[in-house]
Design a binder for these strands. Structure first.
Lengths: 166, 166
DNA sequence: TGCTTTTTGTTCATGGTTGTACAATTCTGT
DNA sequence: ACAGAATTGTACAACCATGAACAAAAAGCA
């Protein structure tokens, strides 16, 4: 039954990717800790940064960008709105969508959070040269493109997505 | 108030790290999908692989390796044990600890899952040469070491951890 | 030995994420 | 114009992960 299964510990792609995954995990934990003083978590930061760079985006488009379910944003956004960090304005052109925008205080908080994140990344990668960083980013970009191709291994097999194909 | 906050979009360390984070996210989603036929999820795979490579490990040591809370394993392990994938044998030397070990069928499933993961990684990184992979792993390893230093930004600030310092 | 402290695993309340079901709105094709 | 399909956001139940509180066992120390 075992159709030749050599263990992959010596496979360069395999074990180096494992290092990538672990680095992401520890970076995520460190970021969560570094953001505690601002009382936000990494998912909130993702939202805020996207709103900063793309004001007026809809909840659905934001969910697509972040690769999370839109129900997730339906829970998170009202909570950030109550904190006065953003506003959800109904679009007169299409009354289904809510256009998202940072408030001034939301923009301030976002800039603070970005500074914290940038500082963490800079300190963490201080031993990597610009050329090394660019090569890493190059490899990662190819991975992302490979996995997000239309036939890629990424789309969730939900009923809604199945119907969309038909 | 704004003490010079240039936006980091052009900072090589910053934007290349963002690519790393996104690659990890899409790879995690893809792995979850690829593992569906085996009815396990990435966290289960992490557990199984560690048990495969370190038989007889205790729950606490496993939690430390995986960087998750031990209460998490207290929920997950009995469920994997009920599926017959592993056994938890009480240590006669120290009757507090439970020694974890894969069953034969657990080993089989682990090998299948590793094959699936290896295949996914190989396909995804096929455009990256061995040298590129090794450089990526090198950079990631330095990041991990930087973040897991004793004074690093990783340890959770829990009451238990605070007491340990005193 | 006795007493305190530490360690291990479990239980439980809390909060986060997901997918599904649903109402409101817009689009499509005839 | 109008009925059916598609899209947007919400509500909800299920599942996962976490930290705190706890009981049992071991270790440290007088």
């Amino acid at each position: 039954m075992n159709k030749k299964q050599p263990l992959p510990w010596d496979n360069p792609r395999f074990h180096n990717w494992i290092a990538v995954a672990r680095a992401c995990q520890v970076m995520g934990l460190s970021l969560a800790r570094a953001l505690q003083p601002l009382d936000i978590k990494p998912p909130h930061l993702d939202i805020l940064v996207n709103l900063f760079r793309t004001p007026g985006i809809s909840q659905q488009d934001l969910a697509d960008k972040l690769l999370v379910g839109r129900s997730n944003l339906s829970m998170l956004l009202p909570q950030l709105e109550k904190r006065g960090l953003l506003v959800r304005r109904s679009d007169p052109q299409d009354r289904r969508v809510l256009r998202l925008e940072l408030t001034p205080s939301g923009t301030d908080l976002t800039l603070e959070a970005i500074a914290i994140q940038t500082d963490l990344i800079d300190r963490t990668m201080k031993t990597a040269s610009t050329e090394e960083c660019n090569l890493v980013g190059e490899v990662m970009t190819r991975i992302i493109h490979e996995l997000t191709r239309p036939d890629g291994a990424i789309e969730a097999r939900t009923e809604e997505a199945e119907r969309k194909k038909a």
